[in-house]
Design a protein around this nucleic acid. Structure first.
Length: 579
DNA sequence: GCCGTTTTCGGCCCGACTGTTTTCAGTCG
């Protein structure tokens, strides 16, 4: 995708300029532009044709010119020029924590460092050479940074980070000096992947509280320990930054360290325009503190309701909140059921009955059992005969359970085959309560072909939900190269829903695509794709992602009570079959 | 390099920690 390629080039441009010691605001402009492009749903090529590139926040005359140049030539002269003579690997090294452009430049000049191998090799030499500004500690710090960098090439999945953080926070709360402890940073914003953990603690003796925290058994190594901040490594080599603040600053610190950086810059600019100042200690007019204890006060003084952390990405949330247009975000409690779950019949680990019992504990009105179709051989997909047995089995269970919630819906996760056909006959599909159609094979099709497969599936009157629409696996499989606008239009016309798959490995649709779907008036289904009873809980990650995408309950079919959902499921099957 | 209900020029968020610094630069978030 051009968007990502240009974003990456701008990001590298920022680093090249930093390396060359250029004006830091110019550098920031490139960084901001890169972030902006990554958030963009529209295709840059399309926007360029419509002469709308300069409508993108952070893109002005120069950068839009570079984007056009890239679209036409696949290159940006300016970047080629600036980066001449700088090895690409050298630029990569700038993401090593503790190694900034200045230090790298020094090492490059003094020791001809051009890649990671050079860097490792020169550290001993640098130590021996005793060059100015290079003590033993600094060398050590860079070495640690290299380890951390190599380990964190892959960021942690939210589903991995969240339980770890909850564990650590529980331990922190047991320390007597610590009155409160909460996660901040990208974890609190529920980003799909997490670099390191940020935690804010409330203590009237922060220095001692941090010392206590650094002694916790979970802590493997203490990297920095100050009056207000400690940095430690916990098990798994995960870095945790802990900030200690007194009560009057707790809300301000939480706000500040939750970010995102762009959200905070925007908010501070807004405050400054009104003669106010925000920092991690509070909101001030001159020396007078107007707020700080409570996060909500800060937003309130700026004329906004409290901002859900998931929205804080500077994607228009500040303007929306200030205009009273803040979305009423979906919450976990809004969900009335789950429309995508597996059992031991295909590749699940829990039985039908176990899954239903767990869904009952979760207070669901309905649970759809959607095992795989026969083409999914590795997942023991059900052929027509086994599906027939399934009908029988579920009927029996329904009888035994009587009127008890949840209602058990007979469904299937049906493969969309390489030719666009579905893996069950229409006659079979017509008998199912819920049909989730999804691509599981032949991902390498060209953009047009793969989009065509999905359009064919959406045109089938029995399909209710398009499962994990882009097929991505976070950090391991790229999303399908889709014409998403056409898919949105088709889903809208067919009245089908797109899934927000809650599996921590998928989160598919992602936040910005989900937002685009809602704006296009397309319905969504938030599902767990559970393969065990424990995984039914994964649906919460789907809700987090939905919240990041500004999703309101009205757009999500499984917020509906059974009576409403059942009509929708039937109407879709009948109405479309008739046409 | 972007951006503008004060501005088309002159701003651009703000503070902590570390190391090796005798007063501050580099880095980070």
């Amino acid at each position: 995708m051009v968007n990502e390629e240009v974003a990456r080039t701008f990001e590298r441009m920022a680093r090249v300029l930093a390396f060359r010691g250029q004006d830091r605001f110019r550098i920031m402009a490139y960084e901001r532009a890169a972030v902006s492009l990554r958030d963009l749903e529209e295709d840059l090529a399309t926007l360029a044709e419509q002469h709308k590139l300069e409508d993108i926040p952070g893109i002005g005359k120069d950068l839009s010119g570079m984007i056009e140049e890239y679209i036409h030539t696949g290159k940006i002269q300016r970047y080629e020029h600036e980066s001449k003579g700088i090895a690409p690997e050298l630029i990569d090294l700038m993401s090593i924590p503790g190694l900034g452009p200045k230090t790298l430049l020094l090492l490059h000049k003094r020791f001809r460092v051009n890649c990671l191998g050079d860097l490792n090799a020169c550290l001993d030499e640098a130590e021996a050479a005793k060059i100015k500004g290079f003590g033993r500690k600094k060398i050590q710090n860079i070495r640690r940074g290299i380890d951390l960098w190599q380990a964190s090439q892959q960021r942690m999945l939210l589903g991995v980070a969240l339980p770890l953080a909850e564990n650590l926070i529980a331990e922190l709360r047991k320390i007597a000096l610590i009155e409160r402890a909460e996660a901040a940073g990208s974890l609190r914003r529920r980003r799909e992947t997490i670099g390191d953990l940020d935690i804010v603690i409330l203590s009237e003796d922060g220095s001692r509280a941090l010392q206590e925290a650094a002694k916790l058994p979970m802590v493997r190594q203490v990297i920095a320990l100050g009056e207000t901040k400690a940095t430690v490594l916990i098990e798994g080599g995960i870095q945790v930054d802990i900030r200690a603040v007194p009560k009057q600053s707790y809300g301000a610190a939480l706000q500040y360290f939750t970010g995102s950086k762009q959200h905070n810059i925007h908010l501070r600019t807004l405050a400054r325009d009104r003669g106010l100042k925000i920092n991690e200690y509070g909101l001030f007019r001159g020396n007078r503190r107007l707020a700080g204890t409570d996060e909500a006060e800060i937003y309130s003084i700026l004329g906004m309701p409290v901002m859900p952390p998931e929205l804080r990405e500077d994607r228009g949330e500040i303007e929306a909140a200030a205009d009273g247009r803040a979305p009423r975000l979906i919450e976990l409690q809004d969900l009335q059921g789950d429309l995508h779950a597996h059992t031991t019949a295909s590749d699940g680990k829990s039985t039908l009955e176990e899954m239903v019992d767990q869904a009952a504990k979760m207070g669901y009105q309905y649970l759809a059992i959607t095992d795989h179709s026969p083409s999914e051989r590795v997942a023991h997909g059900l052929n027509a005969d086994r599906l027939e047995e399934r009908f029988e089995e579920i009927q029996q269970l329904r009888k035994r359970r009587g009127n008890k919630n949840p209602r058990i819906l007979i469904g299937a996760e049906v493969d969309i085959l390489p030719d666009g056909k579905l893996d069950y006959s229409d006659r079979m599909l017509a008998r199912l309560d819920v049909v989730v159609a999804a691509i599981h094979s032949v991902f390498r099709h060209k953009k047009g072909e793969i989009t065509g497969r999905i359009l064919d599936a959406l045109a089938n009157p029995y399909v209710h939900v398009l499962g994990h629409p882009t097929g991505r696996l976070i950090g391991s499989r790229e999303p399908l190269d889709l014409d998403f606008e056409r898919i949105l239009a088709a889903a809208h016309d067919a009245g089908a829903a797109l899934e927000i798959n809650g599996s921590m490995y998928r989160l598919d649709l992602n936040d910005s695509m989900a937002r685009a779907a809602q704006e296009a008036g397309v319905l969504l289904a938030i599902s767990s794709d559970a393969h065990s009873t424990a995984q039914l809980d994964q649906i919460k990650y789907g809700v987090f992602q939905a919240r990041r995408g500004w999703i309101e309950p009205r757009s999500v079919i499984n917020t509906w009570p059974w009576i409403k959902l059942s009509r929708w499921l039937e109407r879709r099957s009948r109405a479309r079959a008739a046409s």
